[in-house]
Simulated scan of single mutants.
Amino acid sequence: MPRDEIEVPKELREFMLEKAEETFLGQKNGADKQYRYGNLHIREYNDKFLVHTDKIDPRKDPIGHLVYDAPEVLIGLACAIFGGSQIAKKIYNNKSKKPSLSYGLMSSIISGYIGYTTSKRIKTYLE
């Protein structure tokens, strides 16, 4: 749990803001549902709510949200595009003269995952 996240027991259900909207935007982190109210991000679990404030509301500025609140997603995408294409080129040049979509796809997925998880760990460590 990030340091800036607050845990609210489910018994305090009246805490849930009436105007909070259920959303798919954001990482669920195992939550049953998630809600947004302005910059407030609320995750609902079986026994509790976890609440934190984002710097930028992704519904209003998705790119700004990725840059300031979820840079690991952008890093993962960059790694998937650049790293995946470089690995696929190497495999293509060394093993086969026939291009393969599966080489490119698998190398992109692996590169993106490594970039995402590494930057997520660094972000968590720095928080």
Rank of each mutant, 00 (worst) to 15 (best):
R3I: 07
E5I: 02
E5Q: 08
P9V: 09
P9D: 09
K10T: 02
E11M: 12
E14H: 13
E14P: 05
F15R: 11
M16Y: 02
M16C: 07
E18Q: 13
K19C: 03
A20C: 08
E22K: 14
E22D: 11
T23V: 07
T23Q: 04
T23P: 14
T23D: 07
L25T: 08
L25N: 05
Q27Y: 02
Q27R: 08
K28M: 10
K28D: 13
A31M: 05
K33D: 03
K33Q: 10
Q34W: 01
Q34H: 01
Y35E: 03
Y35S: 12
R36F: 07
R36W: 09
R36C: 01
Y37G: 03
L40Q: 11
H41L: 13
I42C: 05
R43G: 12
E44L: 10
Y45I: 02
N46Y: 04
D47T: 13
K48C: 07
K48Y: 08
F49D: 03
L50P: 00
V51G: 05
V51Q: 05
T53G: 04
D54V: 00
I56V: 15
I56Q: 05
D57Q: 07
D57C: 14
R59C: 03
K60S: 10
D61E: 09
D61F: 00
D61I: 01
P62Y: 02
P62R: 03
I63R: 02
G64R: 03
L66P: 03
V67C: 05
V67F: 06
Y68M: 09
Y68R: 03
D69E: 05
D69T: 07
E72N: 15
L74R: 01
G76R: 02
L77G: 15
C79T: 11
A80D: 11
A80E: 05
F82A: 13
G83T: 09
S85T: 14
S85F: 11
Q86V: 08
I87A: 15
A88T: 04
A88K: 02
Y92I: 00
N93W: 07
N94A: 15
N94Y: 11
N94C: 09
S96G: 13
K97W: 01
K97R: 05
K97N: 15
K98N: 15
K98G: 09
P99A: 07
P99D: 12
S100F: 11
L101V: 10
S102G: 01
Y103V: 11
Y103N: 15
M106C: 13
M106Q: 05
S107T: 12
I109L: 15
I110M: 13
S111W: 01
S111N: 06
I114H: 02
G115P: 11
Y116G: 07
T117W: 12
K120N: 11
K120G: 00
R121T: 03
K123D: 14
K123T: 13
T124K: 11
T124C: 00
Y125N: 08
Y125R: 06
Y125P: 04
E127K: 07
